[in-house]
C-alpha cells in the first residue's frame, strides 16, 4: 500500500511538511475567503439594521423547506468528507473513493434542490425588478442579498464539486496516491463552503419566521 512515492512535490523536503504546508496554504486562502464573504455580511448587517421590518416581510417569502433540506444535505456532506479525509490519511483507498463519491453526490443534490428552489422563487417574481411583488422598497434589498449570497455560495460549491470529481478520478486511476497532500486541501475547502451556508441559512431563511 505504500504508493506515496509520487506524492512528494517540488520543493518540499518531505511529505509531512508538504501536508502541513498545503493545509496552511488552504487555511490562508480561507482567511481570504472569510473576508470576501465578510464584505457581503457587513453590507447585509448594515441594511438589515436600517430596514428591520422590510427584511422580516421579505424573509417570510424564502422557501424554508428547500433551505432546510439543503442544510441537512450540506451538513451530511461535511461528515462524509471528513470520513473520506480520514480514510485517505489512513490509506484506505476504497473508503476514500466511496465517501468522496458520496460527498460529490450530496453536493450535486444540493445544487439540484437549489435549482428547484430558484424556480419557485422566480415563479413568484422574487427577483428584484419591475414585477417584484413585495413592499416596502427595501424588501427588494433583501432579495438582492438572497440572490447574491446564494449565487456566490453556489459558485463556490460548484467549484468544490468539480475539484472533488477531478480528485476522485485521479485517485481512481491511481495518478496520485490518496495519502498525499491533496485531500487535506480539498477537505478544508469543502468544510468552508459548508460553514458559509451555516451562516447564510439564518440570515436568509429564518428572518421573519416568528
Amino acid at each position: 500500500m505504500s504508493d506515496t512515492a509520487g506524492a512528494l512535490q517540488h520543493p518540499w523536503p518531505d511529505l509531512r511538511m508538504q501536508r502541513a504546508g498545503v493545509g496552511l496554504g488552504m487555511w490562508m486562502f480561507l482567511a481570504s475567503e472569510v473576508l470576501f464573504f465578510g464584505g457581503l455580511m457587513v453590507s447585509y448587517a448594515v441594511y438589515r439594521s436600517f430596514n428591520e421590518d422590510a427584511f422580516r416581510i421579505a424573509g417570510a417569502h424564502a422557501q424554508i423547506v428547500y433551505g432546510s433540506i439543503n442544510t441537512v444535505i450540506l451538513l451530511t456532506s461535511s461528515f462524509t468528507m471528513t470520513v473520506a479525509l480520514r480514510a485517505a490519511t489512513a490509506n484506505v483507498r476504497q473508503a476514500t473513493l466511496l465517501f468522496l463519491g458520496i460527498t460529490a453526490a450530496l453536493g450535486i443534490a444540493f445544487l439540484v434542490c437549489k435549482g428547484l428552489e430558484y424556480r419557485e422563487d422566480l415563479k413568484e417574481h422574487l427577483f428584484p425588478g419591475p414585477q417584484f411583488p413585495l413592499s416596502p422598497p427595501a424588501t427588494a434589498m433583501f432579495w438582492g442579498f438572497y440572490w447574491a449570497m446564494t449565487g456566490i455560495h453556489a459558485v463556490h460549491l460548484t467549484a468544490g464539486i468539480a475539484v472533488v470529481l477531478v480528485v476522485w478520478t485521479l485517485f481512481k486511476r491511481r495518478v496520485i496516491p490518496v495519502q498525499g497532500s491533496t485531500m487535506e486541501g480539498v477537505a478544508i475547502y469543502w468544510h468552508f463552503v459548508d460553514s458559509v451556508w451555516i451562516v447564510l441559512f439564518p440570515l436568509l431563511y429564518l428572518a421573519g419566521r416568528s
Binding site: 496552511l24 487555511w27 490562508m28 482567511a31 481570504s32 472569510v34 473576508l35 465578510g38 448587517a45 439594521s49
Partner: peptide, 24 residues
C-alpha cells in the same frame, strides 16, 4: 500557526464590522 491564521480571518472581520458600524 493554523489556528492563528483562522483567528486572523475572524479578527479582520471584526475590524471590518466595528469600523463600518462606527459610521452607520
Amino acid at each position: 500557526l493554523v489556528r492563528i491564521v483562522a483567528a486572523a480571518g475572524l479578527f479582520w472581520i471584526i475590524i471590518m464590522f466595528a469600523l463600518t458600524f462606527s459610521d452607520f
